[in-house]
Amino acid sequence: MTDEQRKFTVVGLDLSLTGSGIAYRDGSTATVKTKQKDGDGRLAQIEQAVQIAVGGSEGLGPAVDLVVMEDIPQNSHAAKPIAMVHGVVRNLLVKTGIPYALVTPATLKSYATGKGSGDKVPMALAAYKRAGLEFEDDNQCDAAWLRWAGLEWLGNPEFSMPAAQRDALKKAVWPGVAR
């Protein structure tokens, strides 16, 4: 099988301490919701969910080729708790040898909608327009767009995007994955 024929597996993660969106390698999505009363145990819950998503448990098949995560927001009150979640998840990915990419929220919005700002509604509309999908919440929608961005970057897009929107992905931090 040539590289051009190879189908890559990508997981998208929109990480948050309260509601992390996961887009699995098969395209399905879920939200990992945690409760404040669980304290730092929430980090373990998120880590376990990500481990399952990337095939870190026995019997789930091969590990994924790439994980694409929304980068830690700058100048946000949410940056500190999101950074804690990123630390746990990145450590898991490093230990399992799975490469990951970081995409800023503005870059993800530019890829999805052609505009790097705005609320969550344009993201949801773009997902419906491009893929015919609706999501339970914006965490799942963002995770799906992160997965689609990774597939696009690896040369296996799920649907056609305008060139200008594809070019937005050049701003992301991509690992050295053979594509």
Rank of each mutant, 00 (worst) to 15 (best):
M1S: 12
T2I: 02
R6W: 04
R6V: 03
K7M: 08
K7A: 07
V10A: 10
G12P: 12
L13D: 05
S16I: 05
L17P: 02
T18R: 07
T18W: 00
I22L: 05
A23C: 14
R25A: 10
D26A: 02
G27I: 08
G27W: 06
S28L: 08
S28C: 06
T29L: 08
T31S: 15
V32E: 04
V32N: 01
T34E: 00
K35V: 10
K37T: 14
D38K: 07
D40N: 09
D40Y: 08
A44G: 04
I46D: 01
I46W: 02
V50C: 05
Q51C: 06
I52Q: 11
A53G: 11
V54A: 04
G55N: 10
G55L: 05
G56P: 14
G56Q: 11
S57D: 12
E58N: 10
G61M: 08
G61T: 09
P62T: 12
A63V: 11
L66R: 07
V67A: 07
V67S: 08
M69H: 15
M69N: 12
E70K: 15
D71S: 15
D71A: 13
D71K: 14
P73W: 04
Q74W: 10
Q74G: 11
N75A: 09
S76A: 13
H77S: 09
A78K: 03
A78W: 01
A78V: 12
A79L: 00
P81H: 04
I82A: 01
I82Q: 03
A83I: 02
M84H: 10
V85I: 04
G87M: 03
V89T: 00
V89F: 01
R90E: 08
R90F: 00
N91G: 08
L93Q: 02
V94M: 02
G97L: 03
I98V: 09
P99E: 09
A101Y: 11
L102R: 15
V103K: 08
P105M: 00
A106L: 00
T107V: 14
T107W: 10
K109F: 06
K109T: 13
S110W: 01
Y111E: 09
A112L: 06
G114D: 11
S117F: 04
G118R: 03
G118W: 02
D119N: 10
D119K: 09
V121A: 11
P122M: 11
L125D: 07
Y128A: 11
Y128V: 04
K129P: 00
R130K: 12
G132K: 09
L133Q: 15
E134N: 14
E134V: 14
F135V: 03
E136G: 11
D137N: 15
D137H: 13
D137L: 05
D138G: 04
D138K: 14
N139W: 02
N139I: 00
N139Q: 03
Q140R: 11
C141V: 05
A144Y: 15
W145L: 06
L146Q: 12
L146S: 13
L151P: 06
L151F: 06
E152T: 14
W153F: 12
W153Q: 13
L154N: 03
G155A: 04
G155F: 01
P157D: 06
M161P: 00
A163Y: 05
A164C: 02
Q165Y: 02
D167Q: 14
D167G: 09
K171D: 15
A172R: 13
G176N: 08
V177R: 09
A178L: 07
